[in-house]
Simulated scan of single mutants.
Amino acid sequence: EPPLTFAPPPAADASAGKKGGKAAKEDLEATVKERIAPRKRAPAEDALGSPADFVEEPAFSRKDLPRPRGRFTRVEAPRASFMELTRLTGKPIVEAAMEAADHRFALLRALSQRFNGARGELTQVELENVLRDHALMDAMVEKERRQVLDGFTTQRGAAGRVAWALGLSPSELQRLVSALSLTEDVEALRERFRREALATPHLTHRLDLLGREKYLTDLGIQKKFADTLRKELERLVGDVLHDAGDLHELADAVARKHGAPSELVFRAFERLGLADGLRKQLLASSR
């Protein structure tokens, strides 16, 4: 018998194979993109509830916050009675405070933070009694006298500057000077610096003092000093008036002749009320 033969399968369409392979590849890429893409979760309505369920809760106010505790707590230390200072054990406390204080007012401020007086705040009288009980008053007075006299010498008699340097008000400085019996000594120092200010021979120094109006007012000589300097400038201007064409040239001429800064001379013309009159004189002399 002849052998059995099978018909070959029909040839596949080449164009269909290409299309099928391309579609499969696109499906594979789409599947990969879906797997790696982030998933969007749909909100669960039951879990979220309705908008009416959301009610804004009020924020905590400062008074609702708990008070600080432990090392963060600020509690003022209780103050002891000043009678503790009158005892023998109180003397080292007073001596230590005296080393850091220039005068009795500073000493009172330091000790009143730790001790009460008989009727509330510690008073100056109670403090002075404590100093006398411990025989420390003389040392305090000696220190205060030195501070006050050095202050008036350093500040050239200006009481306001002395008070500021010592940490005192003007009234406290007056009380301290009176308590130390230094009124005459202080006035003698102030008078010395008044005479020096009025008798300063160099023009530059006098022009500089004119700008320190508060200092002159403190010494009580501001008006007298201004009147004296005005007369002197009028005399100096008369010698060089014919050499100047305007006020600046006039100030330069006076400054050059007497060795003073021209800017200070020009300012003195303005401050002493000489500028308008000098301009009129310059205008008249130029015609």
Rank of each mutant, 00 (worst) to 15 (best):
W164S: 08
R271I: 07
A275E: 14
V75M: 13
H202M: 08
T153V: 08
D208W: 09
L176F: 12
A268R: 00
V162H: 02
E172W: 04
E99D: 13
F60T: 05
F152H: 01
E191T: 10
D243A: 09
M140N: 01
R256Q: 14
A80W: 08
T154H: 09
E142H: 10
L168F: 02
D252R: 01
G167W: 05
F82V: 15
N129D: 12
D27P: 07
V265M: 04
V130G: 06
A253Y: 00
L48V: 00
E196W: 08
A260V: 14
S286Y: 09
R279L: 15
P43K: 00
K19N: 14
V148R: 00
K91L: 10
E232G: 07
M83G: 05
T89F: 14
Q124A: 10
G49N: 01
L189N: 01
A165R: 02
L198S: 01
K19T: 14
Y215G: 06
E45Y: 03
L176C: 11
A30P: 04
T31F: 12
R67C: 03
G117Q: 05
G151T: 01
V75K: 15
L182A: 15
S50P: 01
L173A: 01
L198P: 01
E34G: 09
R74P: 03
R212C: 06
G245T: 15
L210G: 03
P2Q: 09
S285G: 07
D138H: 07
V141R: 12
V141K: 12
E84Y: 13
M83S: 07
R175V: 08
D243W: 02
L282F: 05
P92I: 00
D27K: 13
L108G: 08
H248F: 02
P66K: 11
P43S: 00
K214R: 12
L210R: 03
S171I: 13
E29I: 15
T154P: 07
